[in-house]
Design a protein around this nucleic acid. Structure first.
Lengths: 189, 189
DNA sequence: GTATCAAACTAACAATTGTTAGTTTTGTTG
DNA sequence: CAACAAAACTAACAATTGTTAGTTTGATAC
């Protein structure tokens, strides 16, 4: 469908505005102005404001879920798995850092099924992460610090990448991955 | 003033609601309901919704600024200073984790002077942090990884403490500080 | 018991919100 | 050119927003 293209433009523009002010503070008229059209015209392409939000968030959450599942089902060491998770976050952040703002800050404005679906994906993701850390501790790959603190501190850094990365102009993805692995993981070993 | 007390109750209730849904999504009627009164009655104690937000955020930002200034002006080593910064974040988080949600997610809804004032404090704080890391690298206390990545990963963890700490019931402040210092700093050394 | 004052109330406002209905414009295809 | 669909428009709606004005309540002090 060609309409997909115009809808995607709207979703992308919305993600930028949501990043700046949050979902609730962005009006359909704001979004329309950003697109150079009138608010009512948006509804030729989308069904509701809520649909825009869920399009942004669910797609990203599914990307993370898919990536995490591949990593979990691989036969790498715990440390290698953590390196792949870091790599996953950096890749997704590079591809759609605007949308990640909504995923991090506006997920609670999802409604009904999408809210439950998102929360399940998020919980599963965290639990997979936790199990990888635990297995790493068991195989002596990872120093036996408090598990929750390791999980939290690593995840919070990865989740906040979207805020930080766009500001760093002179860092390439590969360099970033290398340094991030060094800073986040070498301390744990 | 006795009124200070009632105002503080409102501000505290607001911080909880702002944490759950964000500043823009919380209405004065929501807040009034949480206080068990009608929306108009709130205005006997506060001047505007905006005043509530700035009260929450500016107070916290000033706490961080004061704490950071003391640390910067001390004659400790860079590592000791970083340990004190971690300690500062944990103390503030313990005292007011609800308010920290607004500081992190709703600061952009501050208006005029308060917005500028906040942004200046935030920038100064980051710059102080950065200089401490740099001096630590210069004295060989800290491994010479990319400075920005060290600053970002450490700060992002500290800034997100408010999300995580209230969920951990069986961790005391001292234990948390010890583990946090271990996870965040030992890796850098 | 009357005066006082903080703190609640009712009622209403002007502005803004997401959204719908119906119409016109634009560009492409036969 | 005629036909069609995509995509814009105007106009309006019902609901909700932050806030104000004026009034009543309830407790404390004289």
């Amino acid at each position: 469908m060609k309409q997909e293209s115009r809808k995607q433009e709207i979703v992308n523009a919305a993600a930028i505005l949501f990043k700046e002010k949050g979902y609730s503070a962005v009006t359909m008229r704001d979004l329309a102005t950003a697109m150079g059209i009138k608010a009512a015209s948006l509804y030729n392409h989308i069904q509701s404001k809520q649909e825009i939000l869920s399009t942004i968030i669910i797609e990203l959450a599914e990307e993370f879920t898919t990536g995490m599942n591949q990593i979990v089902n691989s036969d790498h060491s715990a440390i290698q798995k953590l390196e792949n998770i870091i790599s996953l976050h950096i890749d997704v952040t590079l591809r759609n850092s605007d949308g990640l703002a909504s995923l991090n800050n506006d997920w609670m404005h999802l409604e009904e099924d999408n809210l439950l679906y998102f929360e399940k994906m998020r919980n599963d993701y965290e639990e997979n992460f936790r199990q990888i850390v635990i297995s790493g501790v068991n195989t002596n790959e990872i120093k036996p610090n408090n598990i929750e603190i390791i999980v939290f501190s690593t995840l919070s850094t990865l989740r906040t990448l979207y805020l930080w990365y766009p500001k760093q102009k002179n860092i390439e993805a590969d360099m970033l991955k290398k340094d991030m692995i060094s800073v986040l993981l070498k301390g744990l070993v």
